[in-house]
Every structure is written in C-alpha cells, then in structure tokens.
Simulated assay, not measured.
Amino acid sequence: MKSFLKKALAIGAISLAPAAFAVDMTGAGATFPYPIYAKWAEAFKAKTGSNLNYQSIGSSGGIKQIKAKTVDFGATDNPVKFSDLEADGLVQFPAIIGGVVPVINVDGVKPGEIKLDGPTLADIFQGVISDWGDKRIAIMNPGVKIPSGPITVVVRADGSGTTAIFTDYLAKTSSLFKDSVGSGASVKWPAASTVGGKGNEGVAANVTRVKNAIGYVEYAYAKKNKMTFISLKNKDGQFVAPDDLTFSAAAASTDWSAVPGMGTFITNAPGAKSWPITGASFILIYKNPENKTNVAEVIKFFDFAFKEGKKMAEDLDYVPMPDKTTDFIRKNVFTKIATK
C-alpha cells in the first residue's frame, strides 16, 4: 500500500510540474500580429501551462507600455531606431512578417478586381482623388464597372505601426504624398472625408460599415472579415494580389541581421511577385528586465513560435521568420537579455 501511494504521489508530482512553473507573461502593442500571437499563445499554454496576456493597443501604445515597464515586452510594426534602443537599454527583433492591404466597400466589385498603383492610391488617401468615378481609376481598370460615389477614407485613429508601414510605402511611391503628408505611426490625413478607427479592428469595422469607403488593414483582418482588397502594381510593374506567397517574395531579399537593431521596412521591395506593402512586426525587451522570470518565459515563447509556430502563421497568411534570421536572433539578441 505504501509503495502504491509513493508511486501515485510521484506521478502526481510529474503531472503537476508544468503548472508549478507556469508563468503569466504580459505584452502590449501592435494589432498587426495579434491574430498569430493569440494562436501561438494558445498552443504554448497547452504545452507549458504558461499564459500570455497580450493587449492589442497599437504600436505606439506598445512602445509606451514597455518604456513604462508595465509589460514584459512591447510590440511595434514601426521599428525603433538603434540609437533609441541603446539609450533605453532595449533589444529589438522581428517576430513575424505580414502584409498591409487596401480594402474597400464598393458595390459589385470583387476582391482584387480593382487595380491601382502607388501614386494613385496615395492621391486617394490624401484626397486628390475623391470619387470612384475619377478617370484616373477608370484608365487603370478598363472593362471593370466601378460605380461612381464619393470616397470615404478610413485610417487609424491611434498611433499605429500599420500606418507607419502604409505611409512608408505611399511616401516611397509618391513625392507629393511624401512632401504633404509624410510617413510615420501617426500622420495628419488631409482628405476631407477621413474617418478614424482604433486598431486594425476599428478600420475593418468602419470600411465594412461605410459605403464607398477605402482603408488599410493587416491581411489577416481582411481575410477574417471577408473584405474586398485591391490589387497593386509593384516595383517591377506587375499587378499582384496579397497572400503569404507575395509577402514572402517581398521579404526574400531582406537581411535584418545587417541592420543595427534589426529595424527596417521592406515596403516597395523588388521582385515580380512581391506585394509592395509588406512589413515585419517587432518585439521590444529590456536587456536587464525587472521580472527576469517572466522575460525568460517570453524568450521561450518566441523560440517556440519560431520552431513550432510556422504552420500556424502560414494558416493565417503570415510569413514565418526565416531560419537564418531566427538563428541570428537566438545568438545575438536573446543572449543580450539577462534572465537570471
């Protein structure tokens, strides 16, 4: 009987081991990667018992939260400059690649049917083109029946890495947009009919609600909400549709390890199959964090995501970081973080 009891206690101890060391991690920031972080968190909790509480509040909010030391990591699609990382004692690494997609609510138009180039898209978002019946749109779309109607531009109301990626692309392809609007996580949109939405969720909701609207969201939100997207002309002059293959093609030539702090945009990338508004989402962690136990688990979480989360990412049309890049992150970023 004693022998049986000892064995039972031993088995119980083993089965309880993961829960005994379970950690509640906290993160905040970009809405761009939220769908995949939620998926990874579910799988990681099932494997380890550790839970990730991630607040999808926008990139600017994520940077503020990590600087205030209220979370274990911050997330931003607008990479922080290396000099600022050094000044604040932070490290940064890209965690996932995805695409920002112009989405519309125009009657009778199918996904990908309307084709635009960068300068025309920029003119729409700065109010130079204000009606779907504009001849510049018609010339680019022969044979496509596009009903006339005043365009409502839907943008992010919060400081957003998605906006930073989107405006970086528009500024690269339109000198007028670059000079009059610029680029960044938050800009002053000049179109008279501009409506703001909080997060990718808010933009998607407003585009869906407002007839003749156009906005921009991370592709997972467009797919989830079955939204109508626009095809875009890329740097090589080819019209492409957004998906994981065109995002991957855009990111193929990017070497994050060659950039101090790994922070770079990959918009308007060369390649016949490249989606022109592709970007990465980045993670910010202190080199010497206050809660070392939690941050050690955060590192395990992203290592798990890099190794075992690729299929989950692909299922949501994100692009996993290349093995070469994740190897670099393990050797040159994770090793700079004090976890003991």
Rank of each mutant, 00 (worst) to 15 (best):
V217G: 08
E218N: 13
G199V: 02
Y221R: 05
V217Y: 07
N206R: 10
R209G: 10
Y219N: 13
G202R: 00
N212T: 10
K223C: 04
V217W: 07
K223D: 15
E201R: 03
N200L: 02
G199D: 03
G199Q: 02
N200C: 07
Y219K: 07
K224G: 10
G202M: 01
V217P: 08
V207L: 13
A213S: 13
V207A: 11
K223Q: 15
G199S: 04
N212E: 11
N200F: 03
G202D: 04
V203P: 02
G197M: 01
G199W: 04
V210D: 03
A220E: 09
G199F: 07
G199N: 06
A213D: 09
E218A: 15
N206G: 01
A204T: 07
G199M: 03
G202S: 07
T208C: 00
Y216N: 12
N206K: 13
K224I: 00
T208D: 12
N225W: 04
G197A: 00
G215P: 07
G202H: 02
R209V: 08
I214N: 03
V207Q: 10
A204N: 05
Y221I: 08
K224D: 14
M227C: 09
M227V: 10
N206V: 01
G202L: 06
G202W: 00
A222P: 10
R209M: 14
K211D: 15
A220R: 05
N200V: 00
T208Q: 14
Y221L: 09
V210M: 09
I214K: 03
E201A: 13
I214L: 10
Y216E: 14
V207I: 11
K226Q: 13
K223A: 14
G202C: 06
G197K: 01
V210L: 15
K226P: 03
Y216S: 12
N225H: 11
K226N: 15
K223W: 08
E201Q: 11
G197E: 02
A204W: 06
K223Y: 10
Y216L: 09
Y219T: 08
